[in-house]
Computed example of a mutant assay.
Amino acid sequence: MLSIGGFSVALALALFPGSGDALKEGDCEVCAAFLGKFYQSLEGNNVKFNSADIEQALVKLCKDAKGKENRFCYYIGATSDAATKMINEVSKPLSHHVPVEKICEKLKKKDSQICELKYDKQLDLTTVDLKKLKVKDLKKILEEWGESCKGCAEKSDFIRKITELMPKYAPAAAKARTDL
Results as ranks from 00 to 15, higher is better:
20 G>W: 08
170 A>V: 03
166 M>W: 01
75 Y>A: 03
67 G>C: 06
157 D>Y: 06
176 A>V: 03
140 K>F: 11
23 L>W: 05
144 E>A: 12
96 H>R: 14
148 S>R: 10
47 V>S: 08
51 S>A: 13
159 I>H: 00
118 K>T: 04
133 L>Y: 05
37 K>Q: 13
1 M>G: 15
44 G>P: 02
64 D>W: 04
138 L>C: 04
55 E>S: 15
8 S>H: 13
15 L>K: 06
59 V>C: 10
76 I>H: 02
127 T>P: 00
105 E>A: 06
95 S>T: 05
125 L>R: 00
111 D>V: 02
175 K>Y: 07
46 N>C: 14
130 L>N: 01
168 K>Y: 02
142 L>I: 00
154 E>Y: 06
134 K>N: 06
19 S>L: 10
99 P>K: 11
175 K>G: 12
24 K>Y: 05
167 P>N: 03
32 A>C: 15
39 Y>C: 11
101 E>G: 14
112 S>L: 10
71 R>W: 09
163 T>L: 02
35 L>S: 07
153 A>Y: 12
61 L>A: 11
104 C>L: 09
75 Y>C: 01
46 N>V: 09
46 N>I: 11
33 A>L: 08
30 V>E: 07
46 N>S: 12
86 M>G: 10
125 L>M: 00
46 N>G: 09
154 E>F: 09
115 C>N: 03
176 A>G: 10
74 Y>S: 07
34 F>Q: 09
83 A>L: 12
84 T>L: 11
69 E>N: 04
136 K>P: 06
174 A>Y: 00
122 Q>N: 10
56 Q>W: 09
118 K>V: 04
98 V>H: 06
36 G>D: 08
128 V>Q: 02
75 Y>E: 08
28 C>I: 06
41 S>W: 08
88 N>L: 14
84 T>M: 14
60 K>P: 06
150 K>V: 09
142 L>P: 03
68 K>T: 15
36 G>E: 05
111 D>L: 00
1 M>C: 15
127 T>C: 05
100 V>K: 05
74 Y>W: 01
81 D>S: 09
11 L>I: 07
128 V>Y: 05
145 W>F: 04
90 V>T: 10
37 K>F: 12
48 K>D: 15
19 S>C: 14
59 V>Y: 12
22 A>D: 13
172 A>E: 13
40 Q>K: 15
12 A>Y: 15
157 D>S: 06
11 L>M: 10
100 V>M: 00
66 K>T: 14
33 A>Y: 14
13 L>H: 15
121 K>I: 13
92 K>A: 13
66 K>N: 07
85 K>P: 07
151 G>N: 02
15 L>N: 11
99 P>V: 09
161 K>F: 10
16 F>Q: 12
1 M>I: 14
94 L>S: 04
73 C>E: 02
165 L>T: 03
82 A>L: 01
67 G>H: 00
120 D>Q: 08
124 D>I: 00
129 D>S: 14
58 L>R: 03
163 T>K: 02
85 K>W: 11
55 E>Y: 04
150 K>P: 14
151 G>H: 01
27 D>F: 08
133 L>C: 02
130 L>P: 03
84 T>Q: 12
107 L>E: 08
95 S>N: 05
93 P>C: 03
74 Y>F: 08
95 S>A: 08
87 I>P: 05
160 R>F: 10
180 L>I: 13
